[in-house]
Amino acid sequence: MNRLKLTIKSPPKNLCVEIDGEVFEPEKNDFSNYCYSVETEKETMKIVITRFLELETKFWWLWQILYFFVSLFGILDLKQENRQLKILYSAEVELNGDNFIDLIINKSGDKAVNILNTNAEIKETENKLEKSKTAIKRKKIIKYSKIVAWILIFVIVFLVIFLR
């Protein structure tokens, strides 16, 4: 039986870790790092780390409309910084008894993940941080929609006040 203990230090929000095709929910330790412990009979394990982007979800437009109205027409909405940065990391880990991997996820630069400490052999197949084209496109759509919505609001207010 092989064991793997994966620790992700200072993880970003909305992180998704797949180990051998299965999505795991993280356990937070005292330093609010994400910890995953997996047991397997296999000798190799595939780790895929991605990040969910709000603008890539299924009903993104519906959520955005909801946020727009709840946040008083976008005034009290959250900032949209770094919400289009995509984490693409996949690696194969050769296991031998008890193994551990400590890694950190970069917020900028080319590489998405830096391995800090490990006793396992890791073959990285993908490790990059890139901007999601879909998210950027949708962000633009949201921006223009907000402008149109604000113009409409002003027109409605004008009509209600002055042409009643």
């Binding site: 929000k13 969910f52 709000e54 979800t57 946040s71 959250l78």
Partner: peptide
């Protein structure tokens, strides 16, 4: 389907933060 669960949770968290702002 954990992916969809996590995605929904993410959106709900955002909504929660907006509500907190409000």
């Amino acid at each position: 389907d954990y992916k969809s669960v996590m995605q929904t949770r993410m959106n709900v968290k955002h909504l929660g933060k907006v509500l907190a702002n409000l």
